[in-house]
Amino acid sequence: MKIRILILLLFPLVILCGPGYSAFAQNTEDTTKDNIDELAKLLDSTSKGGVHSYYTTATFKSTRIINGHSIENVGKGVLDFRIAHRFGELNEGVKNLYGLDNATTKFSFDYGITDWLMVGVGRSSFEKEYDGFFKIKILRQTINDACPISLSYLGGMSVKTMDVAKIPGYTYYLSNRLFYIDELILARKFNQYFSLQLMPCYLHYNIVSELGEPNDVFAIGAGGRMKLSKRIAVTAEYYYTVPGHKLNGYNNSLSVGVDIETGGHVFQLFVTNSAAVTERTFIGETTGDPFNGALHLGFNISRVFTVVRTPQVK
């Protein structure tokens, strides 16, 4: 009997204490969580500069979209060796294996002097043209959209070294063989997958072949890429030459391709209606009519070498 009374007396105590104890345990967990939330708030309110203020990277996979330049530069101290190849026209038939019998090639070396300045030299087999350029980053898009776009300037010059039939009595100046390109590149990486850029271009010919042809060619280009996976992307590029400011008998350049990235290499495979690779030839002098099957298969291979390494944090 006594025991029964004792149990009866203790019972309410157990009921009170049991859940009370577990509630206490629950509360320490909650307190820790509240505390951490409080710390997170404290950290956010005091952290200098805040997060997300970093530059957007990899708007494009390579420094070229297809024929033309992308917004990307090679990094500081990096040498990029590129081989560009354009086969003949697809409509040449089986006799020329759909253009694979002919090809124009270009070798080039690009180097990043700083993270915002890149220079390059190249040699193209089409009309034996040598070219040099520099590309400067002016504005850079940031992750937090404090700067929503990237802007770069490209300046270049090329010289045609192919022999020409000389008419006696005329003086042939070296300047007759020179071409200049000025280009602005405006780009935005909209998300992980989609990037777009616009390129107003100005080409200058010191001499043109026909009377009445302009020496200055204006064009506006558009390029984009859509990533299919982390390492494969579809790219497209179009250059519209402004009527009245273009050479007679040439078309606009249209290219569609695929970028494949494997470690230090980027392979670009595409079809384009431009037969050659320098700015002067594909913006100003694209011959092929894409709707008539005058398309060229082509590829670019890029291999980067690190010449100067960036240091670690001390």
Partner: peptide
């Protein structure tokens, strides 16, 4: 609570 910006890491063997 400790926090770091992932994009702030430097070093590596190349910018790429």
């Amino acid at each position: 609570l400790f926090k770091i910006d992932v994009a702030s890491f430097v070093g590596f063997n190349s910018p790429l």
